[in-house]
Amino acid sequence: MTELRYLAPATLDEAVKAFASAGSAGRILAGGTDLLVQMRSGAVKPGVIVDIKKITEMTAIEPTADGGFRIGAAVPGAVLAEHPHFGKAWPGLLEAINLIGSTQVQGRASAGGNLCNGSPAGDSVPALVAAGAIATLQGPNGRREMKVEDVPAGPGRTNLLPGEILVSFTLPPRPKGSSDAYLRMIPRTEMDIAVVGVGVNLTLKDGVCTAARVGLGAVAPTVLLVEAAAKALIGSKLDDAALKAAASACSAACRPIDDKRGTIVYRTRVAGVLLKRTALIAARRAAGN
């Protein structure tokens, strides 16, 4: 049968070189919680696996000079949850990352892998989009940055160039009165895939929303940044009218399909409901910051 090579380089340069030279046979291994399942089911048959967990930069959680965070693409959810400050600044993003898989899976699964898997239903992605996270990529032609919302290209596809590896996420500094939240709808209580996921990140000043970003998952071929929903929230005190307008904007942004996980009608409706609930949780948290 076909040969499979496993590489675990210690530096990013080696990883990029190995990955680029493997071409379409290459696969990046972070936690492996998607890749190994896909390999076992026969959905993918890689010739070269490049394990990035030995690369320091990709497993580090660091403060940035301006007071934000840089999170290595291969940092597992469980490690992020144990960080002393991250969850305080980004509770919504953390809860989204911690929803990927079961407790056992959390020991391996990373936000980087979740984004690169390209699923429109990935739990961390709407929260990353809402957070305004910037992805750092490195490829044969060097390093570049990309907004997270620009990374997915469609189900199972990304806009990364051949040979490019997602290195880390950069999160901006938190102004006073800021917080975020993430909610998803699943028919069960865990061990399920989001039928709709909503991330809301906002800043309040004297009870008025001064900044907001809304990420919406599982309702279109890619996770969406819903600017119309954010606009409806900004300038309001998150009163019923503002929430209703933002919910309508979310429902209007939906371009879902009918599939085994949900119907068009249901997803469209639920996107609005979740927006309201998520925004209120984010606001309650922000009021305490």
Binding site: T189, E190, M191, D192, I193, D259, K260, R261
Partner: peptide, 16 residues
């Protein structure tokens, strides 16, 4: 059958 696995054939889990 479009859901031939325990992910999308939703039997209850403990927390349900």
């Amino acid at each position: 059958v479009d859901n031939p696995g325990f992910l999308d054939y939703r039997m209850p889990v403990c927390s349900d």
